[in-house]
Amino acid sequence: MAEYHLKTPLQDEEIKDLKTGDKVYFSGEAWTCRSKLQKTVFDEGWKLPFDTREKNLLIHVGPVIIDEGGNWKLVSFQPTSSIRFEKWGPASVKDLGLKAIIGKTTMGKDSQEAMKKYCCIHATPLGVTPTLFIERIKVKEVHWLEEMGSIEAAWILELDELGPFLVDIDCEGKNHFDHLDEKIAANRRSVYQEMGIPEDFEYTRLY
């Protein structure tokens, strides 16, 4: 398991080195979104007011940010689950030109394919560490605050060694959790045995 420290904008050459199971920290600019923003961009055709090929690190997160006397204050930050945005995953990679997406959990097969084709990774947080994260993030600006609301707006953040994140999808389209699924399935067979659950057990159908 290697450890990487990357700075945005991210380049294909450095993203290609990352493999599933590696740890990665990010510095530089990143932007945020959740469902509402992706729905307006991908389903309703809104155009983001900044260049995502330059700001090519996206974080799926709904940060808690308050206006403190005209300054934005980040109060809490913890990436949210990416898997529920799978519908928009391939377009995020292909149309927006992203090189890395940070989010809790992982993404699905279509996103994995797109990440392989266009060279992008997905990285997932190691733990729930909002109070550690906020010390490594400065809020720069916000877009579509009124349209989306604070939690779902596109916040532009400046990261300082934000991490560690676990690379769960790499540019080869591999998924760290597919590998774990196999291990857990094997363990389940012995757990079934110890608990007296027959491998071929079928529930009686009640309806």
Partner: peptide
């Protein structure tokens, strides 16, 4: 004994 681990990381 399943090997799921913290945040499902094993």
């Amino acid at each position: 004994r399943l090997g799921i681990g913290a945040m499902g990381s094993g």
